[in-house]
């Protein structure tokens, strides 16, 4: 989706990087097995983080060599954990499909045509995922609708709009029964969602200002020529740093059995590094489907 949640690779040990790649391939494989080949295209870094987080509190799963469609020949290491990756895979399908619904609603007939076609492609996969996680599917639809209303009303509260989105990411752990696991994990995911939303808002600010689209930062601060004033940018950075701190504090409370250094790397190093890139206008995401605020007025 966004691709803002990623580790600082230069700060990872060899084994950690391999574990990260195996989780990414494992999610891709789980998507393919359960939701058909085309669902593999939905795999993304953000959901890889979710898979890592959810599997970190369990016994490490088996790894195997898997065939990779993005490679001409050869195999890659991937995590084989059909049960553990079931929820992240379902969340991925639901989130992407709901976002397409959003795009269809917001765009005109012709502009919305690609989204319409993609919705047809993923319709069956969505049905399957929504049957697996009915509560999550309902909540995602509800929260995106609430987000749409806040955007239409040009809400100046970055907390309120980020909250509407972050509740969705937090709900990716709502099915866990043990509160000692669920509560910290929900907090990590809530702050991650908040970070995602704010990073994306900053990334789109210039474009939104030029086109007159809604962006919470436009109404919360007073951007000049599509850029925040230095003091506002510093303020926003402190807000996202606080999210990093809260996510890190919650992460420390999880009884982690694996991936501790990797998860800490993503939260403590990945988030600030990505945000610095976004501030410098140098962030480049190669993801095809994005959660943006392209709504008119």
């Amino acid at each position: 989706m966004f691709g803002y949640v990623r580790p600082r690779r230069d700060q990872l040990e060899e084994a950690e990087l391999e574990a990260y790649q195996a989780a990414y391939c494992g999610l891709c494989r789980a998507l393919g097995k359960r939701y058909g080949f085309l669902a593999r295209f939905l795999v993304n870094y953000d959901m890889c983080f979710l898979s890592l987080l959810r599997s970190s509190v369990k016994e490490p799963a088996r790894e195997a060599r898997c065939w990779c469609p993005a490679r001409v020949c050869g195999k890659k290491n991937c995590v084989l954990d059909p049960e553990g990756y079931e929820v992240p895979a379902a969340c991925t399908v639901i989130l992407c499909y709901e976002k397409l619904r959003d795009n269809v609603r917001d765009e005109g007939f012709f502009k919305g045509l690609p989204a319409r076609l993609l919705r047809l492609v993923y319709h069956r996969a969505y049905g399957r995922a929504a049957r697996r996680l009915p509560d999550f599917a309902a909540l995602t639809a509800r929260q995106l609708a609430a987000l749409g209303e806040l955007e239409a009303a040009q809400s100046p509260s970055i907390d309120a709009v980020a909250d509407a989105f972050a509740r969705i990411t937090a709900a990716c752990a709502a099915d866990l029964e043990d509160p000692a696991l669920r509560r910290p994990m929900e907090q990590v995911l809530y702050q991650t969602g908040r970070f995602l939303y704010l990073a994306d808002a900053l990334d789109d600010l210039k474009e939104d200002c030029a086109k007159g689209n809604y962006n919470p930062l436009r109404f919360r601060f007073t951007p000049e020529n599509g850029a925040l004033r230095p003091e506002d940018e510093a303020y926003l950075t402190q807000l996202t740093d606080s999210s990093v701190n809260l996510a890190g504090a919650a992460l420390a409370l999880l009884p982690l059995r694996a991936h501790e250094a990797l998860l800490e790397n993503i939260v403590y190093l990945g988030f600030p590094s990505v945000f610095s890139l976004v501030k410098a206008g140098k962030f480049n995401s190669r993801d095809q489907i994005r959660f943006t605020k392209e709504k008119n007025k």
């Binding site: 950075t237 402190q238 740093d241 606080s242 990093v244 701190n245 504090a249 420390a252």
Partner: peptide, 9 residues
């Protein structure tokens, strides 16, 4: 705690 300067562990 919300100024980001004080970082927990």
């Amino acid at each position: 705690t919300v100024q980001g300067g004080y970082t927990p562990y």
